[in-house]
Write a protein that binds this DNA or RNA. Structure first.
Lengths: 330, 330
DNA sequence: GTGAAAGCGCTAACAC
DNA sequence: GTGTTAGCGCTTTCAC
């Protein structure tokens, strides 16, 4: 069917070995022979077979990446950054979408391992439910977690300092004169959620902002979930003057629900997000949020992935500083 | 290193063939032996090697997909839909991001072919510049174009009726009393761009809306490009009362630029988008746009991809009807 | 500088 | 129902 190295070799009148050597530049070959092989390959439209190549070499020059949800722009920003970083080393990215389902995530992780990727970067979609699969994958191939991580310290992690991020937004709220604040976060537990909750509590205490367990409203990581959460807030006996959201998608929904009910943001209630999505400046009102340094995160991920065995200290945690972006919502 | 079928077979005390048969369920095996093999595989943590499997079977159960830009939510919606459709047939998706670069796109297409995917779905990022690579890939493996397509009728295509979409938005503008309209579109030529331009012209003629070649402003497919285009519009001697944008991202930027200059949308100028991104309802003002039937598009793509050789009539074009979504911007 | 031969891990004839 | 054998297309010793 497809043209093979044997075809090229026979047309060029050399052995398969020689053809391989010139096409893979793996060893010196006489110029004349090299030219003949190259020519034969061109004429035949030889494309190579990376499956056979990978089987023989026991490596694929590919890294797998699995994200919780490809429709969440934060993760596509991450993918974009990782892909860009990868480009310099001539490797390809196998991107997988877990669709927020630990089962799908586990299947992708297993599939990447059987496909022989040289490394995996994953942002686990859950906590306990993701652990087994992540641990298994990490045992088979270099793996680094990005943004979120499972509770076990089995593999490296790169992300932002979630507590610092919370301190940034709560500090901003305090500077605006906010005296009480709600926290809207994802119901499904994951590392970001836990850290952000703890950071929120600590920051509110530090800045003298009143909180209340009843003001912690759980939801998913989507605009629709944010809208639902906004409605929950509206049903509260008293509405706090600040709302901290665990990410921008939630914040967009909360702001929308509040606005629909006639609440003015930020005058009546100030709202903050987290991620600084590309859309954050264009929603109404533009979102005050925290920027994640995606390019640096991607660079760190690759550094960790590419450490040789000797340099490997499993469970390394790289925590990068986030940056406050003040816009209109708070 | 990793555990192989031979390891499993020897531990279960059977031949490699038998082990293969029970693990791949390819042929009947006595229950006792099957149990022994399954048990051995479990104990050893056998994961399989899909590279070897693919080489031997000459198929990968994988389909490749290459999109112009993964940070454009319209394409992630498409990816999501295709992935969902694929899930039922137990195949994996190799997703590639062309980053709006025909060179990167061509490299991905070649890589997918050498990786032996069973099919490719691609939304070419350009016109002429994408053609060679798409044609070459289509020659090697079943390929269907999605949304955009190259000029040559070499491969199947699934998309919406762009002219009908333009008629929808222009009709809406006319119904609002708009009498003159600008068209903001991507500078780089591609099939969507061409069709939408033609559709815009025809629709304006039909609805009696005045147009002007000077009111056609080219830009890229991003919010920032839309902002720049909005500024160009503001510099026009006379601002038309309607602006049709080639996609939602552009529309978001145009609306933003107009608003920043004190122009009220839709009262002073009505603006329309195209795609109905998840964010469209939440920008200010919410976007009047056209929805693409992504789930149906994905289903058609798979139908086309999976036709057997006999049913293949290369160059089939499936044109689906778009749907107007009226919100506040027009 | 070049080639012969072995083999990566798996599946598919083909025997028995 | 089970095993033996022969490759899939490539890279890589090891000879020459």
């Amino acid at each position: 069917m497809a043209v093979t190295l044997a075809d090229v070799a026979s047309r060029a009148g050399v052995s398969i070995t020689t053809a391989s050597r010139v096409l893979a530049r793996s060893r010196a070959v006489s110029p004349a022979v090299a030219a003949a092989v190259t020519r034969a390959a061109d004429e035949l439209g030889y494309a190579g077979n990376s499956v056979a190549r990978a089987l023989r070499r026991q490596r694929t020059d590919a890294v797998g990446m699995v994200v919780p949800s490809i429709t969440n722009p934060f993760f596509t920003a991450l993918v974009d950054a990782v892909e860009q970083a990868l480009q310099t080393s001539d490797r390809v990215l196998y991107l997988c979408d877990a669709r927020d389902d630990p089962g799908v995530e586990a299947a992708h992780l297993r599939s990447l391992v059987t496909r022989g990727v040289d490394g995996i970067v994953v942002s686990p979609c859950a906590d306990e439910q993701s652990t087994t699969a992540v641990v298994a994958a990490a045992a088979a191939v270099p793996l680094v977690q990005l943004d979120r991580h499972v509770p076990e310290p089995v593999a490296d992690w790169v992300g932002i300092d979630d507590r610092a991020a919370m301190d940034l937004v709560v500090g901003r709220l305090a500077a605006r004169g906010v005296t009480s604040a709600a926290f809207v976060t994802a119901a499904r537990s994951n590392s970001s959620v836990r850290e952000r909750q703890a950071g929120f509590d600590a920051a509110c205490a530090r800045h003298g902002i009143r909180t209340d367990p009843a003001w912690v409203v759980p939801c998913g990581f989507s605009i629709e979930d944010g809208i639902a959460a906004g409605r929950v807030l509206l049903d509260l006996p008293t509405l706090p003057s600040g709302v901290v959201c665990a990410d921008d998608l939630i914040a967009i929904g909360v702001v929308h629900a509040l606005g629909a009910a006639g609440i003015r943001v930020p005058d009546d209630v100030a709202v903050t997000g987290l991620d600084d999505l590309a859309f954050a400046p264009y929603v109404a009102p533009p979102l005050t949020t925290v920027r994640q340094p995606v390019a640096r995160m991607a660079a760190e991920v690759l550094r960790l992935l590419d450490r040789s065995g000797a340099e490997r200290t499993p469970g390394e945690r790289v925590m990068l500083p986030p940056e406050l972006v003040v816009r209109a919502s708070a």
